[in-house]
Design a binder for these strands. Sequence first.
DNA 1: CTGAAAGCGCTTACAG
DNA 2: CTGAAAGCGCTTACAG
Lengths: 342, 342
Amino acid sequence: MTKHRITLKDIAEKLGITVTTVSKALKDYPDISEDTKKKVHALAKKLNYQPDSQAVALRGKGSKTIGLIIPEIVHYFFSSVINGIMNHAESNGYRVLITLSNNRLEMEKKQVNLLFSTKVDGVLVSLTNETKGTKHFDILKEYDIPVVMFDKVDNKFHCNKVTIDDCLGGYNATKHLIDSGCQRIAHIRGPKKPLNSIGRFEGYKKALIEANMVFDPSLVKECTEVVYDEGYQFCKELLKLPKPPDGIFAVTDQVGVGALNALKDAKLNIPEDMKIVGFSDSQIAQVSQPPLTTIHQPGYEIGETAAKLLIEDIELRKKDPNHMFGSKQIVLDTHLIKRGST
Amino acid sequence: MTKHRITLKDIAEKLGITVTTVSKALKDYPDISEDTKKKVHALAKKLNYQPDSQAVALRGKGSKTIGLIIPEIVHYFFSSVINGIMNHAESNGYRVLITLSNNRLEMEKKQVNLLFSTKVDGVLVSLTNETKGTKHFDILKEYDIPVVMFDKVDNKFHCNKVTIDDCLGGYNATKHLIDSGCQRIAHIRGPKKPLNSIGRFEGYKKALIEANMVFDPSLVKECTEVVYDEGYQFCKELLKLPKPPDGIFAVTDQVGVGALNALKDAKLNIPEDMKIVGFSDSQIAQVSQPPLTTIHQPGYEIGETAAKLLIEDIELRKKDPNHMFGSKQIVLDTHLIKRGST
DNA sequence: CTGAAAGCGCTTACAG
DNA sequence: CTGAAAGCGCTTACAG
């Protein structure tokens, strides 16, 4: 029942020539007669011949597939990134094999090995929050498979990286609160390990110090999951302080909107009684009431740039076996989007 | 410089046995001595041997990869579905190759061909809003590659399908508004073609008729993009009617929250002056103020079920070449989640 | 219990 | 201009 897949052999037999000639004809080798080429192309088209990409890959140069490892997919930022990656990759003839680490280091290790065994031409990765050290990526290095890290990167790993300046973003968010008249600014931060949350926290402190405001550790709350509920709860705690803040910088929009809703439930007016700034410019920030002032983080561009750098490394290496993989750090611009919450 | 990939041959040579034996030992064939197996496994581990999946696929039965075609990825529902698909697939040893149609029929056709040439073992697809007819999927049929459609399906195509009962969902949403005392209920619906938006619209009408309420076409607005802004705009238009509605059923949560915010901007009280129900139970519905009553649509389960059916077809066919691919229509339950907007 | 041999579909250096 | 041959890394039916 199952139809047999058309192979070079089929075409060769029908035309009374050899597989070799068919293969060369399809690839327009100069040493094949125009006449033969024409016949081969015509028949291939008629039979809807599709080369077996496994065989091509086994034989030769690359699978035209890049692997992606991300912590999670149900997330506005990551889906934007994926979108950027896929659009760039596909328009350059590359497939994208997406894998999930579910934010677990063990999964990340497993996925690296799987991608390696799939013989992907390159790997894009945003590290999990647990990841510390990058030994598990060494196998890719050893076998000359280029890697590009984005968003959550490791400073010591030698490869191209695409990030934003989280410290600057955190600084601008906090500065904006100061400029809007806040005197006591709280920060609901992310977990300890990821460089993003460290950077945003540093930016927060920097802005305070620059404005000669005291840094009060009791005004800093630390999320574990970085979700809406944490924003809501931490905000309630902040309100119970003897001296509550009058501004909050939240590490993400999720957390920010959680906090915003806690304020509304406590009958506070925003932005009069309290101002609040988020981070990422995800959809939720546009839709809350009031809409959330936030730091725009260019997810699509991050993905696009990461894919571009990776494919560059792949193609350059194909042409020149001595090409060294890049180790640039591309820092994309963020900017503050002022909305009703400040 | 580039390290040579460890192959069966390497292991065989170091152990002074043949490739055949190594291959069998790694797969725990019963006719290999325990002693040999131990040595082979140990060395494979030490050298971090990873089988070349291209070679495995070329040789034999399937690539252990399933292809996925979805309209878009930056979308809560689809990312939930993907999550369900990937978790089920990965725990069964399958990779997922995700491709995007960007809601364009032409892209959908292209992706089908690409997946075919990649020799995926099966294809999961949610159709674009443009798709009418399914000729472009016939190549998969011809070559006995199973297909499972989910969410946006075609009634005539013969394959397993996973959907929800949109009509019932629409009915329940509208019924809930009626039960809550609404007298004039508007519907902001989706585009004409997709079965989902048709179903939800039918359910809306059914509930009205059953309650002896008149169906007033001027209370129905039709989205093209199905986004927040359309909800906002259409709601404003509805408010301008000589006899405005006192309840709105929106085709998605995005649209619903758009409408909700339009009501708040018009200084109406929700749910006192107007009640509103969305559809999907995406994150945005939990986070709006008041949070949005909605129909929970089990995205994760839809993905999981679709992947399960597909992998079943793949595995059964592997064991029994006469196995016929399924053509069940699995309809998953939805339920209403009551929140502050009603 | 182990191995020699054939073959999956393709590409390419080499010969004619 | 065309083709015979080797080989990519693996699996498996068959022989010993």
